[in-house]
Write a protein that binds this DNA or RNA. Structure first.
Lengths: 158, 158
DNA sequence: CACGACCGTTCCGAAAACGGAACGATGACA
DNA sequence: TGTCATCGTTCCGTTTTCGGAACGGTCGTG
């Protein structure tokens, strides 16, 4: 897809795209929407996501767990954060307790996961679903020397 | 957090925030970054467009898509339904349009998924994340003769 | 009831993004 | 080698966002 062609499909000026690629322009949101629609990609593909998740020093940071924040939903009653997890084999990560009421929901897609409250962690393989109240210290670990891939949904009441 | 306070923390004009809240301004990307940083939320929390009331859950029924309902969260503003998806290879499933405002969020963990609006579906492999507004007919399909495993989060405003 | 603190809106000049046109560079092809 | 289509860049007048200031409204307090 050339610059000229994208300009036609997105109905934006070539000058605009040229400026964006060279970092000499700061696009408006409407412009980004038009480009994202023309490229069939989500907005997040165009906006380098530098915003920090609400759980700053939380479960999903560190060497054992690689996380990618996918989406955040803000409701009157709660905030939802959706993560893609990749858990490095061998290592184990301990997370401190979150505020009361926070729940975590993990769906395992590959590998053997051990996760949950530190005192009584749960184990799950592909297709399994585990959740727990995360107001106590909890762990993430990959078992069997195999990388674990999973989806994590954190619900934080407010 | 008041408008005035946010304006101070994000170092943007009150006129800017006022205009954004009332939909009379189309913000530049730099402005969105400043606001997202001040609120400590990712960009996607600001660029997500949401709509009006509605409901209806299981778009994911049929022979091509095997879904398992993992969890349902009910909020004043929306209902969240978390599914584990397994998509049978070869087949393709068309889902009718959902009410306006419904968004679907899929994380792919294995296989090659083609999903999204029927007119312009998105494709993704392991680790990819796709989302779309599901108020138009949309499809689920597994590419490459391989089973697809994924997580689906459906958000229905009300 | 007067006063101050803070709220969100509106006005306005400066700055920047916007699209269209013009431009030179590059590659395909006879 | 000449022609032509297409590429990405640059110029320019228009449009819109930008922040600061001024404004009126609301709330708590003496």
């Amino acid at each position: 897809m050339s610059l000229s062609e994208l300009a036609r499909q997105a109905a934006v000026g070539k000058a605009t795209l040229s400026g964006l690629e060279n970092g000499t322009r700061d696009p408006r949101l409407e412009t980004l929407y038009a480009i994202a629609a023309a490229l069939n990609v989500p907005m997040s593909a165009l906006t380098l996501d530098q915003g920090a998740p609400a759980h700053e020093a939380s479960s999903v940071r560190g060497t054992a767990v690689v996380s990618r924040l996918l989406e955040v939903f803000e409701e009157p009653g709660a905030v939802y954060e959706l993560f893609a997890l990749t858990i490095v084999p061998g290592a184990e990560q301990l997370s401190p307790a979150h505020p009361a009421g926070v729940t975590e929901h993990v769906t395992v897609h590959s590998g053997q996961l051990r996760a949950g409250p530190a005192k009584a962690p749960l184990t799950g393989g592909p297709g399994d679903y585990v959740s727990w109240r995360s107001d106590v210290p909890h762990v993430y670990a990959a078992l069997g020397g195999q990388e674990v891939r999973a989806t994590l949904l954190i619900r934080t009441p407010r």
